[in-house]
Simulated assay, not measured.
Amino acid sequence: MGDRSFAQLNKAFGKKINKDSQADGVSLLVYSKAEVAKKVSYIYQSGISQDVMFDYTQGAFLHDPYLFEASHSLAYGKTYANIQHTPEIECGDVVSRSLKYWSFLKGYNVRETAACIKAVSDNIFLIVGLSSDENNNAICFERTLNTMDDWLNESSQYLLEYCLNRTFLDEHCEIVTGAIQAQLPQLTGREGQVVQQLFQGKSNKVISAELTLSEYTIENYLRRIYKKFGVHSRTALITKIRQHSL
Rank of each mutant, 00 (worst) to 15 (best):
T57N: 02
V26H: 03
A209F: 04
E161K: 06
Y158D: 04
A236V: 06
H72M: 08
V194L: 11
L67Y: 07
E142N: 12
S21P: 11
A23Q: 03
K106F: 06
Y76R: 04
K100W: 01
K240D: 06
D149L: 04
T167D: 10
S46A: 04
H63M: 10
L99D: 15
V36R: 14
K106M: 08
Y31E: 00
Y158T: 05
E210C: 14
S132W: 00
C116N: 11
T188S: 15
K78H: 15
C173M: 14
D55P: 03
I117C: 00
T188E: 15
I43P: 00
T79C: 07
F68T: 02
D133C: 00
E90H: 14
M148E: 10
I238P: 10
G92C: 13
Y158H: 10
P185K: 00
K106Y: 09
R4N: 05
I175F: 11
D170S: 11
A114N: 05
Y31S: 01
K11C: 01
L28E: 01
L130Q: 03
V36S: 14
A179N: 00
K228A: 06
E171N: 15
Y226I: 06
D170L: 11
E90S: 15
G178L: 05
I124V: 09
S96G: 15
G77W: 07
K100S: 13
K100Y: 04
A23N: 01
S121M: 05
K106L: 06
V95K: 15
K33D: 06
T212Y: 12
K118I: 13
K16L: 13
D93Q: 08
Q22K: 15
L159E: 10
E219F: 02
N82P: 09
A70Y: 06
E112H: 05
G25V: 00
A37T: 06
I89S: 13
Q196E: 14
L67I: 00
G230H: 07
V26Y: 02
G178Q: 09
S32R: 03
Q193N: 15
D51R: 02
Q200L: 11
V206Y: 06
Q45H: 15
S73P: 03
Y42C: 03
A209S: 10
V120M: 10
N135R: 13
S233E: 01
S96N: 12
E171Q: 14
G129Y: 08
N137P: 09
G25A: 09
V26M: 03
W102S: 08
K228I: 01
N165A: 12
I225K: 04
L184C: 08
V95Y: 15
T212R: 13
I43D: 02
W151H: 09
I238N: 05
